[in-house]
Simulated scan of single mutants.
Amino acid sequence: MHSLTEVVSAFLFSSICVLRHTIMRIVIVLAVLTAVTGSPSVTIRPEADSTDVSAHPNSVPRTVKGSKIFGEQEVIFEEEDLEEVMETGELNPDHYPAQRAAKVVQHYLNSRCGSPYKLFMLNRVHSGNAEDVANSGRKYQLEISVQEMIGNTTEKCLAEVLFPRGKQQGSPHVQASYEKLLKINTTAQEEALYQQYKMKHSLLSAQNLPDSYGHIEPDMKPLWHLGAVASSFVMLSESTEDTLYNMAQVANVTQLATENDQLKFDYHVLLHDMVSQDIIPWKLLVSWSPPEGVKVLQMTKLPQCHDCEKPPITN
């Protein structure tokens, strides 16, 4: 019979042999894996809802993965790269290309039909289509709803906007059907306001319409409306496919003495480009009477104030 010492020694020797054999097998497997794949590594994919802040504002995803609210607009995110939206063919009514072109129509209508008692705003874009026009630019065909803000009347309108390019580059060309808007009758209110301004012993003046709280005194609202209509002349002239203008504020307005039937006003307005977020000051010489309508006699772009506080956006 073997002694206890011999049994233990034999057991330990057998265990050591098994362990050495196992270690050798592991080393061989690791060596083979390293030769085939190189050093082990871990690949971390970006989260599906991460965004590239430098992406084009008109971009849309190739493959939808989910959505969340970014500011006031729903922004859709996905795992693949963003693809810039096609600028020709049918347009998404809620995207920038259609909205920018439709905003130009708003300024066009104000410059044609606006007054202290008629102020037109874009209500909705129903449909839009864009196409390249050889040697001319890009043409947008739109169906929109336009709201007259003071009387709260909304009408549908068909419009065509051409943004010139190349040597023809300049103000957009607009054609629009607005016969229904012409039927909005504000003659009585305009005549009463005209007589009030004409017979005043002291010339009118005002500033900061609206104020920092967004408030405008009721008797100053016609002056603000007139400033908004006059600003549309500038915004129509300055608009491109890369801008989206609103009038932010009448910084100040002064009625000027005149010897004819046209009332004259010196306006200093602040325009807001929603794309660049720039606040741009303009000086306007404006005339108005009910028979002749609103005319902008002079418009001068003033030096931009980069440190100025942005006024409340009103339209």
Rank of each mutant, 00 (worst) to 15 (best):
E47H: 11
H107L: 11
L297P: 00
D278T: 03
G227E: 01
N135A: 00
Q298D: 07
E155S: 11
R20N: 15
I216F: 12
K103W: 04
D242L: 03
P164F: 09
C113Y: 11
S205E: 14
V32G: 02
W224Q: 09
V104W: 00
L91C: 15
D49G: 00
R124F: 09
G128R: 14
A48K: 00
Q169A: 11
L181N: 04
A31L: 08
D242E: 11
A230W: 04
S14H: 11
P46Y: 07
L142M: 00
S287F: 12
S289D: 03
L82M: 11
R138Q: 10
L12V: 15
L19I: 15
P210K: 08
V161C: 03
A228I: 03
V250A: 11
S171F: 03
G227C: 01
P303I: 01
L203Y: 15
W288A: 06
E47K: 02
N185M: 13
P311T: 07
A102C: 05
S127H: 12
Q298F: 12
N315S: 09
Q304C: 06
I16G: 12
A251N: 06
E84L: 15
V85T: 15
R138W: 04
V64K: 02
P93R: 12
P97A: 04
V85W: 15
R138N: 07
D52K: 04
D242G: 10
V85E: 13
I28R: 08
S239K: 05
Q106H: 03
N260A: 02
V53K: 09
Y213Q: 08
T243S: 14
E6H: 14
S212G: 09
M299K: 15
V105M: 06
V229C: 10
A192H: 02
L302E: 05
Q169E: 14
L256P: 08
I44S: 00
N110T: 08
L162N: 00
L297Y: 09
A257I: 12
E148L: 10
V146I: 07
E78L: 00
C308W: 01
T22Q: 13
R25S: 05
W282M: 11
Q99M: 06
